[in-house]
Design a protein around this nucleic acid. Sequence first.
DNA 1: CGATAATTTGATGTGGCTCAACCTACGTGG
DNA 2: CCACGTAGGTTGAGCCACATCAAATTATCG
Lengths: 241, 241
Amino acid sequence: MIFDKFLLGRRRNQLTDGDLDALEQAAGPFRDLAPRTTLITQGTPVTFSTYLVDGFMCRYMDDRKGERQLVAVHVPGDFVDLHGYPLKRLDHDIASINACRIVQVPHARLDEIMIARPGLSKLLWFSTLLDAAMHREWIFRLGRFEAIKRIGHFFCEIEAKLRAVGLSDGSSFPLPMTQMDLAEACGMTPVHVNRMLRELRERKIMQIRANSVKIFDLAALYRLCEFDPGYLYLDDGIAQP
Amino acid sequence: MIFDKFLLGRRRNQLTDGDLDALEQAAGPFRDLAPRTTLITQGTPVTFSTYLVDGFMCRYMDDRKGERQLVAVHVPGDFVDLHGYPLKRLDHDIASINACRIVQVPHARLDEIMIARPGLSKLLWFSTLLDAAMHREWIFRLGRFEAIKRIGHFFCEIEAKLRAVGLSDGSSFPLPMTQMDLAEACGMTPVHVNRMLRELRERKIMQIRANSVKIFDLAALYRLCEFDPGYLYLDDGIAQP
DNA sequence: CGATAATTTGATGTGGCTCAACCTACGTGG
DNA sequence: CCACGTAGGTTGAGCCACATCAAATTATCG
């Protein structure tokens, strides 16, 4: 079962057995990625899409001075660059954060799915729009939140996504990101990330160390960052604080 | 010809006459919207999607204190909330900026298109992913650019989009946004927007007044904001500075 | 165990915010 | 056709959140 986490927590029940079979048939073999490996470079034409089986990946853009901004962080069960199928080339880079396992689906196979399986096609489309919804929330966060809320909100999102696929129990979860990574995700400097993490720790809300996050008070974290998981389009009951 | 601007400048030639007919058949009658009218409210289930024939619209989210962040600005030829079709409800509000003309397409008709026209379906999917690509650029802009580049980059994007549908000649175009709107789009205060606009004026790069933007030196503007229109997925030759 | 990456802390600078006033354009009604 | 109200735009003064720079401390791993 390669796609056992795909859309888990989100309309998974609309995937028929036939749909799942079609996906499994379309997928290539498992591939392992070393940590911090660039998989796709901006602008290069792409002919397959990548599904993340295990590990964490990210998408990012660099400016002229080499300053990096993450635009997405991906967890197991995510179709990392399914948007590359209609787009044909990507406007950003994609890389692993830690050691990852992926499978790749050739776009030619997706063409067959588009013709034969409109229901599955619509769900694939839906999954790319989830990313767009998260993009919007990131815009909101960067445009209107101060540093501590930006960081906190980011953790809320990752926690909710991981919970949906069974990788968080609401009080702790793995996260192989450095403070530099967090800074690149939240539009701030690593130094300031460090100070904000200290504040979250001192306020007994949460703590991050050794690639693992501990949440002491998820309700307080939600409150602090005005977190409302509606934009993640999760099935009811998932991601309550 | 309702959809004469749809995907103009972007793979328009992949739309067959049959595809266009199917779209025209699916669309309801013209509808006129007064300026500053909310069309869709966050969270409400949607059963149709809106295509913008004329005017400017925007999508936005508000925080607890009522501070607003725009997440997209739409121009004629945009399918404003096509993403509502797979998503079924929206995570943000949609409103007109000035007086707009729209048509609406029931989602039931899009279901028929998904079954009968995989090629058109893929182009519709593509058009929603254009918005996602713009979202990513907004994230980048908010996370890594200082105020003057944020504003300038926003103008570059709007100009390029308008040029693709024939509404800008590269040196001037209509834009019915107030400085407050610009502030909400660029994650800053109206006061600071005003100062940055003054700087752009004094540096003889561009000027905005009476709902109209004049660009004195587009190449300089591109240079200032590191603008690269690649993420707009325009056909070659459009949007050169 | 030494090299290297990551985290932590302090001191100082500044871009953009806040608050407050004033100015200008424009639509409406007397 | 002018008086007035209102929305939008402009400017100044002071302040603060976050950046920058620099250095020390602590993990991590071959």
